Structure formats: C-alpha cells, structure tokens
Amino acid sequence: MRKAAGVVVLYNPIESEVLQNIKSYVNELDVIYCIDNSDEENNFFSEIEKCVYIPNHKNIGLSKALALGCDKALREGATVLVTLDQDTVFEKKCISTLIKYVEENNDAGVVSPNVKRIVRINGKRKVIDSALYSSSIEEVGYVITSGCVFTAKTYDLTDGFDESLFIGQIDQDFCCSVRKINKKVLRLGNVFMYQE
C-alpha cells in the first residue's frame, strides 16, 4: 500500500506563507515531516493534522535535514518521498501526477515538475506565469531538490543525501547517485510548481 511522505525543510519561516504553501499540496500526501533548521521553534502546524514537526534548534544544513526527514519517513513506512522547500507551491494534482509516474515507470529514479517562478515585488509574492522549461517529458542531468519525487526503493539504492554538503550542489549530487544506479532523472513539463 502506498504511503507518500513529504519532507519540507524550514529556516526562519514566515508562518502565513509556509502554511499557505503546505496547504497547496497537503491533500496529496499522507504525512509531511517539517524539519526546522531555525534557532527558535516555529511549531505553528497544529492546524495541519498531517504535519510532523521536528526542530533542530540550529541550522544543520539542507542535506542533513533532508536525510533526517527521509530516514524518519522510511522508518515509518513511506513508499514514496517528496522533497520540498518552505517556499514551494504546487498546482493541484501535480504531486499525485509525479507519484503516479514514478511508480509506473521502472526506469524513473527521480521525477520533477516544470517550474514557474515566484518573485517579490515590494514585499509581496507575484507569480511569473511562464514556465522555465518545455512542456514535454525530458531526461535531464539534474533537477532542483524541491519538488523531487522518488520511491523508497530508489532512495535505499542511492547514497542518499551527502551530509557533508551544507546547501550547494545537493541536487546535482543526489541526481548523480540516481543515475549511478541506472535510473533516469526526469522533468515532467506539463505539471507545475511555483518556486521563489
């Protein structure tokens, strides 16, 4: 039976924005592990039943936080993992489409959506509605970490997230691990996330 887990890494989040972002995809996941790298606790997730809040009380880096969340998800029976940034927003059914694709295509190691950008103008978020990539399904060298969907089986076969990396090159490194096990890194151009 499928259990889809999200792992979202937080760092000094803006409460209203993060809650709004998580609500854009919460219904497509069974559980969301909120790994908080802030010095202070930000446990404002009580209104979202599926959120499991894990404070680190310091910035341990993105890679360690992702590994912590993925490992906990696997111990608790997750079969599919989705990695997320606190500023990621998804269109409806995007995650469900990505999960279905990775489950039905054995050669797919990581699948990711197309991206539309969010920019800040005078402190307010604005979506730039043009996609960054083509609308086709493309095999690519790497995709950004946020929005990555992969099975627990694929994750177990890779080296996971290199915890010596703090924030940079994590996405490239993980995608290299996926390609080393002869799986593809794919972008589905017809589903979208919004990324600041």
Rank of each mutant, 00 (worst) to 15 (best):
E103K: 09
V7H: 05
Q169W: 14
L186P: 00
C148V: 06
S177E: 14
K23Q: 12
K180T: 12
E41Y: 03
D173W: 08
A65G: 07
I35C: 08
I137Q: 00
I170Y: 03
H57M: 03
S177K: 15
L186T: 03
L29N: 01
E49K: 12
V52P: 00
I48K: 07
G189C: 05
D159Q: 13
G6L: 03
E49F: 05
Y155E: 10
P55T: 07
D173E: 14
P113K: 00
N114W: 02
L19E: 07
G168S: 13
Y53D: 04
Q172C: 09
I14M: 04
A78V: 10
D129I: 06
R125M: 11
I144V: 12
T83P: 03
D159T: 11
V191F: 09
V127N: 12
G141S: 10
I14N: 07
L62K: 06
R2F: 06
V82Q: 01
N43P: 09
I22H: 08
C175R: 05
Q172I: 14
A65N: 04
T151E: 08
L81Q: 03
K183C: 04
G160W: 08
S134Q: 10
L62G: 01
E41F: 04
I60L: 10
C70I: 15
A5E: 02
K3S: 11
I167N: 14
V191S: 06
T145S: 15
I99Q: 06
N12W: 02
N105V: 10
T79D: 10
R117P: 01
A131H: 00
T145M: 13
G109E: 04
S96W: 02
F192T: 02
D85V: 00
K50H: 04
L132T: 00
V143C: 08
N122K: 13
S134E: 12
N43L: 12
A4C: 10
N21T: 00
K153G: 12
C148E: 10
D36L: 09
S146I: 02
G6Q: 03
L132I: 02
K58F: 10
Q20F: 14
S134N: 13
I118G: 04
N122H: 15
L132N: 01
S112Y: 07
E103N: 13
N56Q: 15
A67Q: 15
V52F: 04
L132Q: 05
T154A: 13
Y101G: 11
E76K: 08
N105R: 06
E49S: 15
R120K: 15
V185L: 03
K184P: 04
C51A: 12
A4E: 07
